[in-house]
């Protein structure tokens, strides 16, 4: 295909991505180093019958003018990244010199919004991903052993938790684990504690969110592994059987190595997806106990005061995090490409 033809074919989609993905990234980076203009203050002297007083008032005209002139605001460099809502360098430094034990330092960090969100995001990401891979693998092995009629039905129901909107899925579970809902009731009976409420305790909220994450994403792992099982070489299984391998040995030494590339694929995709979770926090109304970086952005952008600069700085930090998680994928794609050409 000629360059010119390629250009015209690719133009619409390229333009869409350039304008609405590349440009916003630039815009986010720019916004994160600017902050809204402060109001222009002027001093006016009011002279009345009882003498003169000076007052400081906001010069509305000049403020509007400067805001219209430079809508981005004034340049503040790294200030927003370092403030209390983000990396909180000063607070962390103070905390480090004040506290005498590591545990006190860590619990102090928990009061800073950014580190609180990071703690949950990382726990969630690294707890969910292995669990859902394991669950997905077991489901795939079990379903593969079923007869053909049942398979379709099981796959249909298995797809549901993944297909439904995360917000809707988390709401459905949230209503069930409510202390008046069926699972909540069951847990109260199990723990023999009529006042047990998952919503009220931080560790239980975390567990609840992680269980939701596994429930939501295990079907994806299942479907991918199930497809992988269909290409399992029969002769290798037979050879293993002749060599006297037990069922477990066959799974461990033939099936799992065969699925290993798919496990890496699912792990990489899920690490990135779990890192950016925030809908379940909204759905489970769990912001008091668990926040994530994406939730902070969502929270800053919504509401009456749209804190664009704060949200932009968190966005840039999130993008950096995603980039770190993405780098192995990129290296792998690059290697594939090199080996092909």
């Amino acid at each position: 295909m000629k360059h010119r033809t390629f250009f015209w074919f690719f133009l619409p989609t390229g333009l869409a991505m350039l304008l609405f993905i590349a440009a916003p990234i630039v815009s986010v980076v720019l916004q994160s180093v600017h902050t809204p203009h402060e109001a222009v203050l002027i001093e006016v002297e009011n002279c009345g019958p009882f003498g003169c007083t000076t007052e400081t008032i906001i010069d509305q005209e000049a403020t509007a003018e400067i805001r219209a002139e430079r809508p981005l605001g004034r340049f503040v460099g790294w200030d927003i990244y370092l403030d209390r809502g983000h990396l909180a360098v000063a607070e962390v430094g103070a905390l480090w010199s004040e506290t005498d034990s590591i545990s006190a330092f860590v619990s102090g960090l928990g009061n800073l919004p950014f580190y609180r969100a990071m703690a949950f995001t990382l726990t969630y990401t690294f707890a969910c991903t292995p669990l859902l891979i394991a669950l997905g693998l077991v489901i795939a092995l079990a379903v593969n052993a079923l007869n053909r009629r049942l398979k379709g039905l099981v796959i249909f129901f298995s797809l549901l938790p993944m297909i439904v909107t995360p917000l809707v899925g988390s709401l459905i579970l949230f209503w069930m684990v409510d202390s008046r809902g069926i699972i909540g009731n069951f847990l109260q009976w199990l723990a023999n504690d009529p006042d047990l409420s998952l919503k009220a305790s931080t560790p239980l909220t975390w567990v609840m969110l992680i269980v939701y994450g596994v429930w939501h994403s295990a079907p994806f792992a299942f479907v991918v592994f199930y497809a992988g099982l269909q290409t399992l070489p029969k002769d290798q299984i037979e050879a293993a059987q002749i060599d006297g391998a037990s069922r477990w040995d066959q799974v461990r030494f033939v099936v799992i190595p065969h699925l290993m590339p798919l496990v890496t694929f699912v792990a990489l995709i899920q690490l990135m997806d779990n890192f950016r979770m925030f809908e379940p926090i909204v759905g489970f109304n769990a912001a008091a106990h668990a926040t994530s970086l994406s939730w902070i952005i969502f929270n800053d952008l919504g509401g009456e005061t749209r804190q664009l600069s704060a949200a932009a700085a968190t966005s840039v930090i999130t993008i950096v995090g995603v980039a770190i998680l993405l780098s192995p994928v990129l290296v792998r794609t690059w290697r594939d490409f090199r080996s092909k050409t």
Binding site: S27, F298, L301, V316
Partner: peptide, 22 residues
Amino acid sequence: LLITALIFRAMPPITLVAGYML
């Protein structure tokens, strides 16, 4: 171009939203 698309795919949409608002 495909690699760029892959990177764009990984961007969480919520991080882009801050860039659209203004």
